[in-house]
Design a protein around this nucleic acid. Structure first.
Lengths: 139, 139
DNA sequence: TCCTACAATGGACAATGTCTAAGTCAAGCA
DNA sequence: TGCTTGACTTAGACATTGTCCATTGTAGGA
């Protein structure tokens, strides 16, 4: 059921009730929760879980490469459990809704050597912004 | 001298010592300061300028479209005065240095209709991550 | 020069994230 | 099954970043 949980277990992660709840809450497609949202949902299942644990757990999952941190222009970072398939994000400028999208081609090829300033580039992050169908209709 | 200042003046912006200082501090290429850094530098020229004024002024410049907010993965938003030439960013994952870059082609064309979920897309933001020459050498 | 609307100030408050010290518990081992 | 131990969790203080508001100041026009 929980791919994320399975992957973490497979890495010899010490499994605790708190970590299990965080992983379960975060699992799924098009999931992009803030740390605070994760905490709220986790509390619903495990009332005594603390904020610090949620932050710690999310941080560890990011370090392990099982979860990705997404910085949209909102204040809080969001966490995306879909780390194994490379993807980009489509954000509604109005309501903040986020979808995972899969562009074609390699975005890195658009950057000529002369524009790389000698950097060793390892990653490209693309964010498409616009209005979702409901917000387009409302506008 | 200050393009940014000229552009703002041309829009009938009421000019005050504080706004002038903020605009001067922010002007230039490859400039990506946080609000706090802008404040520190502004204080050096105009000791009594307040944090709130810096935030207000930056916010107004963003609304006017003369300055762009950049959300890298760092905590604080950064402000980029180079709003009139479309460009993307290249970030060193180690030292945090940011360069403006100009990729070729239109990144929007990489996203097929089937991946647009009915969104009206208006903007694409690309962040290249890697190591700058110094950090590559140190690694 | 004087008025007035707009801008600046400073300090409280809010949101998000980090750290620490002390208590608790998962998992290996006898 | 019942220890032992080191990793995990907790609560809350603290740090950073950003916003708001009532008061004071001032740019620019009449």
């Amino acid at each position: 059921m929980s791919d994320l949980l399975e992957r973490l277990r497979g890495r010899g992660w010490r499994m605790t009730a708190q970590r299990r709840v965080v992983a379960e809450v975060l699992d799924g497609d098009h999931v992009h929760l803030t740390a605070d949202e994760v905490h709220s949902r986790a509390v619903a299942r495990l009332p005594e879980i603390s904020r610090a644990t949620v932050y710690n757990t999310l941080g560890e999952m990011v370090s392990l490469g099982e979860v990705i941190e997404v910085a949209t222009d909102k204040r809080a970072k969001r966490y995306d459990p879909n780390a194994h398939r490379p993807h980009q994000h489509l954000v509604c400028a109005q309501c903040g809704q986020i979808r995972d999208v899969h562009p074609t081609g390699n975005p890195l090829s658009a950057l000529p050597d002369s524009e790389r300033f000698g950097f060793t580039i390892s990653d490209v992050e693309v964010t498409y912004r616009g209005l979702c169908p409901s917000c387009t209709a409302a506008a």
